[in-house]
Structure formats: structure tokens, C-alpha cells
Design a protein around this nucleic acid. Sequence first.
DNA 1: CTACGGATCGTCT
DNA 2: GACGATCCGTAGC
Length: 207
Amino acid sequence: MPKNIFLEIRVLKRDFFKNDTIWVARKLLGKVLVRRRANQMLAGRIMETEAYHGADDLACHASRGKTSRTKVMFGKPGRIYVYLIYGKYYCLNIVTMKTDFPAAVLIRSIEPIEGIEKMIINRGKEKNNFSDKKKIIGLSNGPGKLCQALQVDKSLNGKELNKMNGLWVKDDGFLVKEANIIASKRIGVDYARHCRDWEWNFSLSNK
DNA sequence: CTACGGATCGTCT
DNA sequence: GACGATCCGTAGC
């Protein structure tokens, strides 16, 4: 893992998330998602994101209007949107754009950096052997998995992404080359008619 | 490696 | 009453 001590560390603030959703989704790659718990810091590098942009995006939850669930997406940029999926898992999003324009970036995958032992417990994997790097990556390489690993649930829904609320994103200087960003179709949105083909899934290649 | 089915419940029709 | 921005275990190659 990279050494952070010589690098400028910047916490992303609201202005970052006011930008276009696709820009934010790309720029979040390589940043570090940090979660503060009582006696433990948990952190991982963002490896995959997805953009959900506007009421015309049929894959976006807000395309069917403002409801009790989706109202957060209509709110201020830089807020946290957490929802329950399949009755079992949470998904973490960060609201983008401006108030009344519904948009957000889904964090789909992070690579553990700090608090790995705690993440193993949070994921209920204490009986496995995690000496293997593949298994460490498997702790948080999915939207539901990373919420379990970082203890993200609906109590964060609607809150500001900042240190006070225990969840934030920092730039540790990790260099991301444009050529290492892969754009693909979004996962699990085949119902979204023509929008299913939009390449708004972004991931970092491991090279 | 890919393919498929079950779990499980809040949200929306 | 139907279904989902998922995950995991199992089966087969």
C-alpha cells in the first residue's frame, strides 16, 4: 500500500461534488474512502464507481420522481445516499450536481487499506484465511460488501460526507492515469431501456 | 472460470 | 403484490 506520509492529504468537500456526475465518478477513482468507528479507522481505495444522473436516466432511482427514498438525491451535493437492496444489503452513494437535480455516484468497489482485521469481522469472514491478497480484495469489491466492511447503513442516509459524521473521502496523492480508467455499462440495470447501454461504470485497471 | 437459484424486506404500483 | 444499482453457495466445465 502507498505511503501517505509525504503526500498532501486533502479531504474532498462539497465543491467537488457540485460537478457533473460523470466527472465526479471518474475523479473518485483512486481516492480513499474513510470510515471512523469508536476505536478503529477503516479505509479503502475506490476502484469502481457508477454515475446515476438525472430524471431522464431510467436507471436512476429518481427517474420515477421524488419519493421518501429518493429525496436525498434531490438534495445538496456531498450528502450521503444509502438505500437497502434485495432486503439484505446497503449501497453507498454520494449526491452530485445541485439541489433539485437528482444525481449520485454509487461506490461499487474499494480495496482495503486500513482496518482489514476489523473488516474481516464486519463481513463475517473470521473463519477464513485472509493471508491471500485475493481474499482481502474480496472483502469490499462490491457495493453491498463495502457497506458491510465499513459498517455503512441507513443511519448515514442524508448526512454530510465529512469527518464529523464519520465518513469522508480523501485525496492522498495517488496518481490515476486516464488510460487506466475503464468505462463500461452499468451493472444490473437491464430494465433501463436505452439507458442500460450508457457506459457510466468506471473502474481502475490493476496495472 | 461461468451459470443459476435462494435469501429477504423496503419501496412503489 | 412484485421486484430490486447484491451476495453467496453450489454445480458443471
